[in-house]
Simulated scan of single mutants.
Amino acid sequence: MSLAALEVLRFERPVLHVLDQALLPGEERWLAIRSLDELTEAIGSLRVRGAPLLGLCGAAGVALAAEVDAGEANLRLAAKRVGAVRPTAVELASGATACLRAVLAVPEMARAAAAWDFCAGYLERRRAEDLALATHGVAVMPRGDVLTHCNTGTLATGGVGTALGVIRAAFEAGRIERCYVTETRPLLQGARLTTWELLRSGIPAVLLPDAAAAALLFSGVVAAVITGADRIASNGDTANKVGTLGLALAAARVGVPFFVAAPTSTVDPGCASGGEIPIEFRAPEEVGGFGGQRWAPGGIAAWNPAFDVTPGELITGIITELGVVEPPYGERLAALTERGRWEGVHG
């Protein structure tokens, strides 16, 4: 497959370089992150985001900490701290834990170098996994236009993307003509980021308000919906950007297949169902305005979850780098994730 990823992250010891996604599409500015404090701020403010990319940043947090103090106590504290910044995305914590496990296996004086080496290898695995996931996804995508939510491309993974990687591969194969993109309120990751990536990929894009998505599905022009995931429970229940549940419900009502595309590292075998997934809530100010402009009166309360949970029964298939899992999930999903561990997919 000839898909190429944009560069959004670089490991150059002792600095992590990331593209500041909070400024896109208006400005392409790179951040030079040199400390754990700077990294946690970048993650918390969504300057860097996307579940798979957060896994890489979790690992980088251990590397940055090791430059200061490579002792076991400090590295464990760093991994715990960075992993807690955004609790729904399981890969942020698991990426940090995987890097921690790798560096604690070597002498203290070699840990900083080992951590940066782990990060570089992690990025290469991520890119390979994205390409494999896209290949599996093309095989199950129906012909016709597709609808997606939030951002699941290079900006979210460091590779060609998960759901957006499948869309890019399907477009290249002539299976889709255009991609409908929700704005993804309140921070507009679809309007700002996914459209930016689609335009760079040469894929015709149509932007719509989140509130219009159900009507679009009922119009009959969409052949499939595909999204990413931040955490998948062992029964197939999936946490993703808030608004995903509404798309899944509407798609089920009109008989449009609803796919989730995510690496096996997004599956949390310790989480039995969606009811156990911690949901991050963000500041009320995000709802009442954007980009320094405010349209709601001051002091108004807001209910602002960053994610919702889609029941596995509404998901047509979960597309991973190891293949596509169809319902019923449970044992089938467990078998795939176990295979991933055996083959070293999780690092």
Rank of each mutant, 00 (worst) to 15 (best):
Phe218Met: 00
Gly236Ala: 11
Arg231Glu: 12
Gly255Val: 02
Ala229Asn: 08
Thr244Trp: 01
Ala233Lys: 09
Pro257Leu: 14
Thr227Asn: 13
Lys241Cys: 08
Thr238Ser: 13
Gly236Pro: 12
Pro209Trp: 02
Val225Tyr: 04
Ala248Tyr: 02
Ala223Asn: 12
Phe259Ser: 10
Ala213Ser: 15
Val254Ile: 14
Leu245Val: 02
Thr238Ile: 05
Leu249Gly: 01
Thr238Asp: 08
Ser219Trp: 00
Leu216Pro: 06
Ala214Pro: 03
Asp237Thr: 12
Pro257Tyr: 09
Arg253Lys: 14
Ala251Lys: 10
Gly228Val: 02
Ser234Pro: 01
Ala213Lys: 06
Pro257Trp: 09
Arg253Gln: 14
Lys241Pro: 03
Val242Thr: 10
Gly255Gln: 05
Ala213Gly: 11
Val242Met: 03
Gly255Asn: 05
Gly220Val: 09
Gly236Lys: 09
Leu217Ile: 11
Ala261Gly: 05
Ile226Trp: 10
Val221Tyr: 02
Ile226Ala: 12
Val260Arg: 07
Pro257Phe: 13
Asn235Met: 11
Ala224Val: 08
Val221Thr: 15
Thr238Val: 12
Gly228Tyr: 01
Ala214His: 10
Ala252Ile: 00
Asp230Phe: 02
Leu217Lys: 12
Leu217Arg: 11
Ala248Trp: 01
Asp237Arg: 13
Ala251Gly: 11
Ala224Ile: 08
Asp210Ser: 09
Ser219Thr: 10
Ala224Leu: 13
Leu247Arg: 05
Thr244Ala: 13
Thr227Cys: 14
Val222Phe: 10
Val256Gly: 03
Leu217Phe: 12
Ala250Thr: 01
Gly243Cys: 04
Gly246Leu: 08
Arg231Phe: 08
Gly246Asp: 05
Val254Asp: 10
Ile226Gln: 09
Asn240Arg: 07
Gly236Val: 01
Ala239Val: 03
Pro257Asn: 14
Phe218Ala: 13
Ala248His: 04
Gly220Gln: 09
Phe259Pro: 11
Val221Lys: 15
